[in-house]
Design a protein around this nucleic acid. Structure first.
Lengths: 335, 335
DNA sequence: TTGTAAGCGTTATCAG
DNA sequence: CTGATAACGCTTACAA
C-alpha cells in the first residue's frame, strides 16, 4: 500500500536514484524533472521511510530520553525543554520511563541503543555508579548526557543546577528574615542533589554562626506525602523550627498541608521555601517562595551537548546552571 | 564499530542466517550452536539493529504520541499510562508536542508516519474537524486513537471520560450541599470536554429547578491564570456565587488563589470543585474536591485500541470511561 | 543531468 | 539443522 521511490520512478519511467535526488532537493537533477517528481510524489501520497533512510545513513535523528518519573512537574518541564530543542534540530524523542529502578533504566538504555537513537539523555539517572561508569567507558558508543546526576562522583557528561548555591540562597533568605531555627526536609537519600542542597543549607547556617541541629534535618521523598510526614515530625519537636527549607516544591506543598492540619499557618507561624519553581508554585496557598531551576534551559543544554558530542565537537563534561531565589508569600520575617 | 550478525557469523565460520535464527531462539537450530552463538554475540557486544529489523518486518514496535502540552499534569499522567501499557506490549513511544497548534499537530503526525510508527495516539487532538476527517479517511493508514477528543463530531477512534456525567456529579454534589448559586468556570472554548462538562452542569441545575444564569458561566483556560481571572469576575458580580465548578484542577487552583487574594476563604465563603484529580489536588489548601478521571486507564485503553486496530481486530469506535467524585475539603454545606 | 549498482543489517523463503 | 539468496526502501559512489 505504501508507495516507495521505486513506484514513482516506475510511474515516470526514470531511475529511482533520480527520484531520490529530486526528493532530497539535490542540485544534481534538472529543475523541471524535480518539479514533476515532487508533484507526482505528492499526488501519489509518498511518505519517505525514515527507517530505510536510517539504515543507510546510520542516523535516526532520534534522541532517547530516560526519565525516572514522567508525572513529576519538574521533569515534565525539563522534558519539554528537551523536546523543543530536539525539534528545532530536526530530532524526535523516544521517551522511556525507569520508574527510578536501575534495572529498568539499563533496560531502557539498551532498548534505545537497539533502536539506534543518535544520543541519550538521562533525566535524573538512577543506575549505580559502576554501571554508569560502564556506560561511559565504552568507546564510540551512543553519547549520553545526564541531567541532574544523582551521584556524587562525576561521571560522563552532565548538566545540572548549582544545588549548593541554591541551598545557600534559600537558607540565607530565611536567615535574612531573622529566622534562626531553620529545618531542612530532604529528598530521598539516594538523590545527590538533595545532599548538595543540604550542604548549602549547612554551610550557610555555619557561616552565620547558627548552630546546626541534626534534629532539624529530616528525610522526605519526592512526593507531597514525604513533606507531610516530615513536617509532622518537625512540629512534634520540643522546639519546632520557625522556617523550613524543602528539597523541592511538592515536598513544600506536603509540608504546608501538614502545618495547616496541625493548626499552624504559613507564613505567620512558619516560613517555607521550596525548590524547582514548578509552574503551580505561584498558585499555592500561600504562593511559594522557592529556588527556581532553569528547567527548559537544562533540557536545551542537554540536547546541545548530545548533538555536539555526536558531531565530535569538544564538550565540557559538566554544565552547571545557576538557580535563583523567587520570593513569594510563604516566607516572612521572624517575629 | 557496531557488530552485526555477519561479523559474528564470520567469526564462527557459519552462515549469518543461522546466527539470526539462534539469536531469535528459533527451534530450527541445534541447541549447542545456539548456545555458542548467543555467548559469542554477548562477548562481542552485539546489539541487534531495530531499524534493520523494522525494514524487513515492517513493524517498528513504536507508538507515536502527540500531546498538546507535556507539562499539564493531567496529560502527564495519561502519558504515563500509555508508556506503561506500551512497554508491557514491547512497544516504545515517540513523544511529540503540538503546543495546541493544529499545524504542528499535523506536522507531528506526518513525522511519526515517516518514522513508520505502528500507531498514533493523539492526546487531546487540536486539528480541525476536516483535517481529522482526512486523517481517518485514508485507508489502511497508521491507526490513530484520540484521547479526549476536543471536537463535538465523533471522528475515528477515541477514548474519553464521560464528561457529561462528570459535570453532573460535580454539580449535584454542590446542590446536595445546599448551594443554589453555582458558577462554572470553563476551559478554552475550543475544548469540547469543557462544553460537555458545562452541559452536565446546566442539565443538573435545570433538573433541580435552579435557574441557569449565564453570568455564572465564565471562560477560563487550561491554566491557573484563567481560573484566577474568572474568579475575580465572579466575585465582582452583584450576587457572587456560593460555589464554583471548575473545568479542571489547575483552574480551581487559580480560582482559589483569587478567592484568597480577595479576602474570601474556601470553603467557608465559597465552595470549589475541580476536575481531573491530579496528584497534587489532595495537597492543595484546602484539599480539592474534584471529579477524578481514570487517567492511567485512558492511556492503557488507547494503547489497547491501537494494538487491536493494528491486529485487525474489531474495535469499538468510542470508549467512554466513567469519572467519579472525590470529596475533599474545598466544598462544604451552604450556610 | 541521469542511470547502475552496491550496500545498510535484518528476516524469510527456499533448497540442501 | 544449516546455508544461499532475495527482499525491505533508501542513499551514494561511480559510470554514462
Amino acid at each position: 500500500v505504501t508507495v516507495s521511490i521505486k513506484d514513482i520512478a516506475r510511474a515516470m519511467n526514470i531511475s529511482y536514484s533520480t527520484v531520490s535526488r529530486a526528493l532530497n532537493n539535490s542540485p544534481r537533477v534538472k529543475a523541471e524533472t524535480r518539479q514533476q517528481i515532487q508533484q507526482l510524489a505528492a499526488t501519489m501520497g509518498y511518505l519517505p521511510s525514515a527507517v530505510a533512510r536510517s539504515l543507510v545513513t546510520r542516523r535516526t535523528n532520534t534522541l532517547g530520553i530516560v526519565v525516572t518519573k514522567i508525572t513529576d512537574l519538574f521533569f515534565a518541564e525539563v522534558i519539554q525543554g528537551i523536546e523543543e530543542a530536539a525539534l528545532s534540530y530536526g530530532y524526535s524523542i523516544i521517551l522511556t520511563n525507569s520508574a527510578g529502578q536501575p534495572e529498568y533504566e539499563l533496560a531502557a538504555i539498551q532498548s534505545l541503543r537497539e533502536r539506534r537513537v543518535d544520543g541519550i539523555i538521562l533525566v535524573a539517572a538512577c543506575a549505580s555508579t559502576e554501571s554508569k561508569q560502564r556506560l561511559f567507558s565504552q568507546p564510540l558508543e551512543t553519547p549520553i548526557v545526564i541531567i541532574n546526576n544523582v551521584h556524587q562522583e562525576h561521571i560522563g557528561f552532565s548538566v545540572e543546577t548549582d544545588n549548593l548555591q541554591g541551598g545557600c540562597i534559600a537558607t540565607q533568605h530565611l536567615l535574612d528574615l531573622g529566622h534562626r531555627r531553620i529545618a531542612y526536609i530532604a529528598g530521598p537519600v539516594s538523590e545527590w542533589d538533595s545532599v548538595e542542597r543540604q550542604q548549602g543549607y549547612v554551610q550557610t547556617l555555619q557561616a552565620a554562626g547558627v548552630v546546626v541541629d541534626s534534629a532539624l534535618m529530616i528525610r522526605g521523598d519526592n512526593l507531597p506525602a514525604g513533606g507531610f510526614q516530615a513536617m509532622h515530625q518537625l512540629l512534634a519537636l520540643p522546639t519546632p523550627p520557625s522556617a523550613i527549607f524543602c528539597y523541592n516544591d511538592v515536598t513544600a506543598l506536603g509540608a504546608m498541608r501538614a502545618a495547616y492540619s496541625a493548626g499552624k499557618s504559613v507564613p505567620q507561624d512558619i516560613s517555607i521555601v521550596g525548590f524547582d519553581d514548578i509552574s503551580l508554585a505561584a498558585y499555592f496557598e500561600p504562593p511559594l517562595t522557592t529556588v527556581a531551576q532553569a528547567k527548559l534551559e537544562m533540557g536545551e543544554k542537554a540536547v546541545q551537548m548530545v548533538l555536539d558530542l555526536l558531531a565530535g565537537q569538544p564538550v565540557m563534561e559538566k554544565s552547571v546552571l545557576p538557580s535563583r531565589l523567587i520570593v513569594r508569600a510563604s516566607s516572612q520575617a521572624f517575629r
